[in-house]
Each structure stands twice: as C-alpha cells, then as structure tokens.
Design a binder for these strands. Sequence first.
DNA 1: GTGAAAGCGCTAACAG
DNA 2: CTGTTAGCGCTTTCAC
Lengths: 343, 343
Amino acid sequence: MSVTIYDVAKKAGVAISTVSRVLNNTGYVSEKTRKRVMGVVEELNYEKNMLAVALMKKQTKTIGLIIPDITNHFYADLTRAVEDEGNRHGFNVILCNTDNDMEKEASYVSFLLQKNIDGIIFASPKKDDPNIKALCDKNPQFPIVQLGGEVEGVNTDKVLVENSQGAYDLTKHLIELGHESFGVVLGHRNSLASKDRLDGINIAINEANLRLVKQNILYGDFKMQDGLKSALQLLKSKNRPTAIIAATDLLAIGCYQAAKSIGLSIPDDLSITGFDDIEIAQAVEPALTTVTSPIEQLGVRAVEMVVSTIEKPKAYKEKTVYQPTMVIRGSTGTPVNNYTVSS
Amino acid sequence: MSVTIYDVAKKAGVAISTVSRVLNNTGYVSEKTRKRVMGVVEELNYEKNMLAVALMKKQTKTIGLIIPDITNHFYADLTRAVEDEGNRHGFNVILCNTDNDMEKEASYVSFLLQKNIDGIIFASPKKDDPNIKALCDKNPQFPIVQLGGEVEGVNTDKVLVENSQGAYDLTKHLIELGHESFGVVLGHRNSLASKDRLDGINIAINEANLRLVKQNILYGDFKMQDGLKSALQLLKSKNRPTAIIAATDLLAIGCYQAAKSIGLSIPDDLSITGFDDIEIAQAVEPALTTVTSPIEQLGVRAVEMVVSTIEKPKAYKEKTVYQPTMVIRGSTGTPVNNYTVSS
DNA sequence: GTGAAAGCGCTAACAG
DNA sequence: CTGTTAGCGCTTTCAC
C-alpha cells in the first residue's frame, strides 16, 4: 500500500512520534533529526493520510456549501469565491446542489455530517427551510452560516445583501424616467430573492403614490424560459406595463425575448431591469440595467465566518450586510407608450 | 461528543461487532438482535462516522473533478452532471478549479491524494498537462478519466467529443453560404479546445480549395472580453473576413460586441459562429449558430468509468467518443460584403 | 449467532 | 530532545 509514517520512522531510525513532530512542527526536534526525517520523507515520497488525522483530531478541514444550482451564474461565481477563500484557509469545500428541493437538501446535510465536515454555508436558504432549523436545534454549536437569506427563528451567523434596496433603487429609477405601470417577474414564491425584491419595489411605488396591480406580479422558476413566459403574459394583458422589473438577469433576458417576439423595442416600448449583473448583461442588446452584488466578497465573508467559528467557537452570532449597486445601461428609458400589441 | 458504535452496542447489550453486522447487513444476526439494535440506532440517532470507515476500508467514496473554471457555463453544466451521477452511485465529488494553472492543478492533485479520494476526472486537460502524466507514472492503477481532452502518451480511460467534427460542420456551413475569408477566434494556444477546432476548420477550408491566412487566427483567454478584442483586431485588418468562427459561445458573443461597436450587422456584414450552445446563445440578437455537445452524457459517462474502475479494477482502458451537433440560427448568412469599416 | 481483539495511520500525552 | 503508548470509530478475522 501507500507509504505510512511507520515506513518513514523505520527508515529514518526514529519513532513515529518524532516523525509526526517534524511533520507538524510541534515540540522540539534536533536540527539533525529533522533533516534526516525530511530526507526520508522526500525519498519515500510520503504523503500524510488526512483520514487518520481527521479521525484523530475530529477536524476534516472541509466545509459544505449548499446552493440551489451551480448552473446559475450567480452561484457559479459564489462557489468560485467560496472555494478560493476556503483553500486559502486550508479548507476544501464540498458542493451540494439542492434545486431548492428540501428533501435533497436534507439528505445532503446528513451526508455532510457523516463525512464529518467542519461547517456548512447555506446559500440562499428558502425562508421556511426546515433543515437549517433542525440542524441548529440538534446541534447549536455546529458552525453554520446563512448566506443571502435568513430562516425565521434560527440564530446563526449570516451574510446578507440588502436586495430590497437594490429593487428600490431600480424602481425609483424607473419612476423618475416617467414610468407608472410596472410588471414584476419573480422566481419561486417562497424564495427570499423574490420576497426582498418585491418589498423594495413596493416601497418605491408607494412612495411615489403609484400602485402595482397584483396581476402584474408573476412567479415562476428562475430560468430564462420562465422570464419569457411571464413577460409574454404581462405584455399581452389589458393593463400592460411600460416597465418590467425582473428578479434576475436571466429572467430579464427572457423578458427581452418576449418583447422581441411581439415586436416591442427596448427601451422605447418597454423598459426592463435585471438583478445580479452577470457577464452577459452587458452583451445583450440593449445592455441591461441591473444591480450588482459584491458576490466575491459575499463568499469571502461567509468563509471567514465559518472558518473562524470552527477554529475558535464563539458565544455570539454575527451578521454582515452588503449594499448592492445599481448599474444603469440601455434597457431603461422614458416610456413612449404609443405602441399596440398584436394579441 | 457524537454517538459512536460503542454507545449503541452498550445500550443494546451486544458487542460492537454485532452492531456493525446489522448496520452493514453482513454475516448472520438473529432477527431479534437486529430489531433491538436498529431500535437503539433510531433512539440514539446514531450516524456512522465515514472517516473511520474510510480509514479501515481504504475507500472514501469520493472522486475529484478537476476543471478550469466553474464560472464557465460549459463546466457548470458538466459539474452538475458529474455530481448528480456521482451521488447516484453513492460518491461525492470534490470540485477543483485550476484556471488552467498547472501548479494549482498539481497542488490540487496532491491534496486530493492526501484526502484519499478514490478517483479523479480531469476535464479538458491541456495537451501537455504534466500532472496527469506524473500521476499515471507513479500509480498506474489509480482510477483516472480524461474528459474532453487527451494528454499525449498517457494511457487512461477517456470520454471525448469530436470537436473537430463540429468545427468542420460549422465551417462547411459557412462555405456553402458563400463565405471565402474567415477569422478564427480561439482560446489558449495549447488547449485542446483550440487545437481540435482549428483542425476541423482547416480540413473544411482545404476541401473547398480556400485558404485561411495565418494572421486571421487569434488566440487569447476564454472570456467574453477576449472575443471582443480578437474580433476587433480581425475586423480592422486589411483582409477582414466575412465570417468569424469562435471557439466558444462566450467568445462569439464577444465578437457580437465588436461587430456592433463598429456598426457591422450580423449576419449581413459578418457571420459569426460559436461552440457549446450555452443557454444565452439563443437569447442574443441574432441567435447564435453554434454546435452542441451532450454535456450531461459526458459527465455521466465519465462517472460511470471512474466508479466502475474503482469498484472493480480492470486491466484495459476504454474510450468513448461523442459527436457534437450543429445548430443553425440567425448569426450566419450569405455575405453581403459591401460594408466599409471606420478605422 | 455473537463476542474479543487486532488493526487502519495518525496525534498527543507521558515518561525518560 | 526522543520513544512508548493509548486511543480516534470502525471492520474483520477468529474463536466460542
């Protein structure tokens, strides 16, 4: 089999504890012995078995990252940030895609636990996520951070983005351009991403003494197709809006397709806004007005939180909140409002 | 601490070996004892410690997936497929983003080895990747599959896509439309993705007795920005092409931006083709003519290969090759060829 | 059928 | 400074 600490010890003519000491820089070892041991380590190409270490130390140097879907660009970026930052701290991360399926999430959680991971980052938990609560109840000490969402009544570390603020900014921007009727294309009904954004939109609309008709708030999945579908429904309705606020860029791009399919021009006939500022947002025609989150910083902060909790349990929980930034591009403009729609 | 097999054994009044037997369905256990043990397991909420199991069995039920960058949509899709299929087989996967940096890859490989993972899938290895070779040389038995690329002189299982065929099809399609001068926007010079595609392009061009001028073959990174930059260079040159063949959709979309920025219309003034058929390809205006690979199947097959090798080492290596499919959309058309370019 | 005991490869007291 | 030893939690002979 592979070479163990025993092989090294024997060949170097020392005890395994000595080898362990030089390998971990722990305790005193004479320079001479250290040299000799290191020599043998090189020679034998010894690699430490982390499994044994983990079993002993009860630390796997691994964290779990639970996200809805890596295929979504936002989560891809986030995952990248978490991985890189995790590695920087000597941790590796196990990715889990739940597709927002709570059973899938539950089985991932118990899987991660069996694997003795040291902590979990839950990205964008649904607001009624039962697994986070169950886990916290069972083991309040276990390092958990909620990223981009918070489950009611669960006290963990948190990293949040004030999405409602972003939605507010976008809406206000549209109002200032002269828009008075809006369509809102959201994702899952019980995702925080949907709720937060709707909140911000409502605040801005109320402030302006306008109103948002209920039928113009549409839910669906987070795929481009869903944006297309929702927008179509919106644009063919009686009180069709002059602006659509989508919960994500991908949804917004779906709306572009809908507009094009029925011959509406953006932004003259219809203004559209997104959320996330994915790479493609600047490539579409016209470029998409959207809101950008410090995704990398989100990941970095979340990792810092778990890792610090893992290394030194603390009695309190903390929360960091980031503000998103609006990016105005070509997809929003003054409404012209004189178009007709082919039913 | 957490509950162990000893706790269960004690409470059930049996030996740990008995508990192990009922847990793993191995050896004879009386129905009565089994019931009792299972009862205690439920009661104590016992979860097996996979670390100890792994140390004992020398199997972690984990595979490593090495990719350039999860942020690239192609790899996001691939990763998703690999994860799902891995889980289906009871394996979990550790993601490693190398950014095509061989040193980073090397450190990941040794990291994975220390973690005692059971096998590795190398996605899109560069053709001179030194780590794969080193690993194979050191341990020829270790389960490895190369996906979407092959390092010269290294004998492992492989899952490939005949990208040269896709490039050939695309080029031929352009030739049939009447194009005679081409620009080629590639990624890294020593990536297989670049080489394969260029091969296919050359074959088609030679077949038609046309020729591809060397200055019209541009390399860069795989980001959208690089596509923009390369296309700009191409379009401002003396012998500007009427068609650009990009190595990926993202690069192609970068070319769209270049065309727009200097007022060329697609496909009248310039035809553009991509590669991969990412979701956005149908959303851009005009929709992108590209080539689609069975990404999910690629991932599935790769997992099948590692897993089967892990579970039952085999003496031979195998290779599965998939054919890509061309998807013709609006970005390619007959060249009009009467445009002028503002320098 | 079930129990006792020997490790898997490593760390961490505890002696010397 | 270095060696001995006792586990970490589990699987797996080998006896009974």
